[in-house]
Structures are given as structure tokens and as C-alpha cells.
Design a protein around this nucleic acid. Structure first.
Lengths: 236, 236
DNA sequence: AATTAAATATGATAAATGTCATTTATTTAT
DNA sequence: ATAAATAAATGACATTTATCATATTTAATT
């Protein structure tokens, strides 16, 4: 939580026009405002767990969250990185299923909870919101399909480079314009890439040796982005 | 096209209540009926190509279609199997992007085309349809995320078994109750699993030797499903 | 500050999977 | 029906990646 956020009301929320609610009718926003329940999750805290019942959606006003599946052998696969302005928990809700992923705060995070019935009601009344929701789902589906293809076809080196660039796209840089604005363990990076922790560590070291990145504890600097892009070998 | 289908009108279409339009208002169905353009695609024909502009959505009244990405090195990754009652082309349309996948008929297929503006208009007016659409997108997203996790974590043997079961779920069996009701090349099966063609071939032979399946040209019989399920090692 | 625990790093090795080459079978075209 | 082309099968081998062991560094706890 770097930027302080007045999320006393949804109307005055920093993320008001940086969210799925950007085109929602004012009246609906105010209804959401009245029923929302705000909360802070400390780094490492769980918002919800795979297998539990969704009772609404979460709207992030500040902070960072990872969403992940637990694979059969207990290995975590991170499927989404959530940032301020994003909502989460909608997938299971709209499918009418239990959560298929868990959500955990990557840093202290401020979140508002919107109850199920209200969210559904507003979605029904506000076609702008409904279309934004469909666009969000479609975009996520696209991302998932691309990732799926890359997991099937691209070597780990390329996927790691791509992942670093994806983290940058999501969370951006710190003030220095180089350091990724999130702290992830090597294991988390591996679970994002879809590889063994040791392989991720090894390749990060290589990337450093090759002068593409710099490592300092959990800080990762992208010092030669062009080369990273080339390494990622992205066509789409 | 095994079952003959009177798709003269959407109202009388076999798939009327087996599609996303099941809960749509009659009036909207009739509007779609008036503007739809029906078409037959022969086996191997392309409905649309990755990179081209979507002008509407396709609704399958009979037949089978594969949707696939072309990976960077030109290798096909099959991301969806489409059957009668399904719609396709909605992902790109709702994202406002060009197609990110190509669609090709796996057998002679009957399809109706619904123009973009009408589809959007009906989605806007018919909240039941909009919710069905969101559910469809959410379900597809779920599937993609599970697949992504399995690609990252499960060995090919398990993924192949899972794929065979997935084909069964999608297209079912022939009259004998054992033969998968679709003809796919070994290469296509590999591109569904996310592996090299030779690996798919080898493992299919093993499955046969192990008595789980029977192979006869492109016919695949699941003769010991229980064991296949065990091999797939599915937890979710 | 000292101790313990956890995370990161690195080497050695094994296992999984892909690639290439070749044979055999099947399909398609003439 | 025969030839040509394509797909399937199989072996040999190379490459990639995971696993295990261990060392080193960093962070957490007393």
C-alpha cells in the first residue's frame, strides 16, 4: 500500500474509474457503496480458499494479491496477479461453483467486499457493467489460452522472460523505473512460470549473468528489457 | 452430421434448448432467426482464421469443430472442441479484438452466423442471455485455468488419459458405447495434450498394451474407463 | 547477538520428453 | 488397381527439465 487511498466511499475511491465499474451507473455505484464491507488483509493473509463458497466479489482499492490453484501433488500454480482496481472472486460466482482458486495478499491490501445478491442485481440492471464483465472474462480467457499454449510449447527460459515482463505489465516499476514493484519469492516466480523452483533460480542467475536483469534479494531489476523481450520470443 | 437437423428456424432447431439461447426471450430468438445466415462447412474447412476480424458469432446446429492457436514455431495448440449447441467466435467479439484462434470443421458441420450488432443488441436487452454468456465465459475460463495447471504440473501420460476422457465428455461415444465419436489424427491428439506427435503415438500404444483402450485406425475405444480415470489422476 | 529456521544457490544425476531417422500402414489420387 | 502421398509406428539418441544433495546466504526468533 504505497499510495494512500480514501476509500471511504466508492464514489471517491482512487480506483473508481480504473475498474470494471468505470461505466457503471452512478446510482448502482452508490448502492454498492452502501452495502460494501471494507477490509484490510495483511501480507500473507488469505482472502478465500479453493473449495469454499463465494458470497460476493472483492474489489481491490490498494495492494496486491495472488490467485493460485493447488495441483494434485500440492504444488501451487499461480494463475493470476491481482492489483488495485481489479475485482476477484467473480469467476466462481458467475459459474455458480465453489472457488477453484485461493487468493492470498502479496502485501498489505485494502479490499471491499460486495455481496453476491447486490452484485448480481446490478449486473442485471446495468448492461454497461455486464458488458464490462464480459469483456473482463473474455480478456482473462484470452490470457489463459495464450499461457496454456506457451506452457505446452515454449521452453522455460522463454517463459521466465515472459513472466518477468508480465509482472512488469501488471505491477509496473518502482520509482527507479527498473525494479519490479512487487516482492515475490523464487518459489512464487517458479509457480508463475510453471517450473521447479531450482530451475527458476538457475535461470534468473543466468539472466543476471547475461546482463538482462539484476538481483538483490527479492528485488528484481529489469536492466535490459529489449533483450528480455527477445528472450521471451513473443509473437502474440 | 449424424443426426439430421431441421435448422430452418432457430425456434425449431434441435439445439434450441441445448444452447446458450435456452433461456433467451422468444422474441429475441425470432429476431436472431430472421437475421441468421446458415452454412455448411465441409470437413477440413476453416470458419475463421487467427488474426481476422470477427463480424458475429457462429452457432453450431450440427457437427464438430476444433479451435486452435498457432504457436510461435508454427505448432498448433488445440484450445477448444466445439459441438452442436455450442457457439463460437464470442471471445474475440466481446474483447473487441481480432480472432486469437482459428476454427476448423472436424467433420461436415452445419453452422448459423449471427451478425455482431444483433448479437450485441440482444445481449444488452436480454439479461438472461447475458448471464448465460457470463456463465459460459466463466466456465471456459475455469477449464483453461485447470488445463494450464495440468500442463505445468502433470506428466504427459496423465494428460493424455485426461484428454481422452475430455474428448468423451465432449463428443460422447458411438452406438457401441465405447468408441469415441470423433476422428482425430494422432497429431491432433498431441496438439490437444500439448506434446510431440511421436510421444502421443507411443503413449497411445502403451495404453492399448495396458488394456485401457483399443486402436483401430483413427477409431479409439475406451475399454477400461476406470483405469483411464486412475491414470489421469484427476483431483479436481 | 546468537541461534534457528527458511530461502537461495549450485552441482550431480536421473527422468521425462523431444527430435531425427526409418519403417510400415493407410489414405488419396491417378 | 496401382502409384504416390500422407499418417502412424518405432528405435536411437539428444536435450530439457526435475530431483536430490548440499552449501551458502538471508531472515526470523529467542
Amino acid at each position: 500500500m504505497t499510495t494512500p487511498n480514501d476509500n471511504a466511499t466508492c464514489q471517491s475511491c482512487n480506483q473508481r474509474f480504473n475498474s470494471i465499474f468505470c461505466k457503471a451507473h452512478e446510482e448502482h455505484v452508490s448502492q454498492i457503496n452502501e452495502q460494501k464491507v471494507c477490509n484490510v488483509y495483511k501480507k500473507g493473509q488469505t482472502l478465500f480458499k479453493e473449495g469454499s463458497q463465494p458470497f460476493g466479489v472483492f474489489c481491490v482499492s490498494d495492494g496486491k494479491i495472488k490467485m493460485s490453484h493447488l495441483g494434485d501433488d500440492g504444488k501451487e500454480q499461480i494463475i493470476r496477479l491481482v492489483k488495485a482496481g481489479d475485482i476477484l472472486g467473480y469467476r466462481a460466482l458467475l459459474s455458480g461453483e465453489r472457488y477453484s482458486a485461493s487468493a492470498e495478499a502479496l502485501e498489505d491490501t485494502q479490499v471491499c467486499f460486495i455481496p453476491r445478491d447486490l452484485f448480481i442485481k446490478v449486473l442485471k440492471l446495468d448492461s454497461n457493467l455486464a458488458f464490462e464483465m464480459m469483456k473482463l472474462l473474455s480478456d482473462e480467457l484470452h490470457r489463459a489460452e495464450i499461457k496454456l499454449t506457451h506452457l505446452a510449447q515454449k521452453p522455460i527460459r522463454e517463459r521466465l522472460a515472459e513472466t518477468l515482463l508480465f509482472i512488469k505489465e501488471t505491477y509496473g516499476f518502482e520509482q527507479d523505473g527498473q525494479t519490479l514493484n512487487v516482492r515475490l519469492s523464487r518459489e512464487e516466480i517458479a509457480n508463475l512460470v510453471g517450473t521447479a523452483t531450482e530451475s527458476a533460480i538457475r535461470l534468473l542467475s543466468e539472466f543476471k549473468k547475461d546482463g538482462m536483469i539484476d538481483l538483490e534479494g527479492k528485488k528484481i531489476k529489469l536492466i535490459h528489457q529489449k533483450e528480455l523481450v527477445r528472450t521471451a520470443n513473443i509473437q502474440d
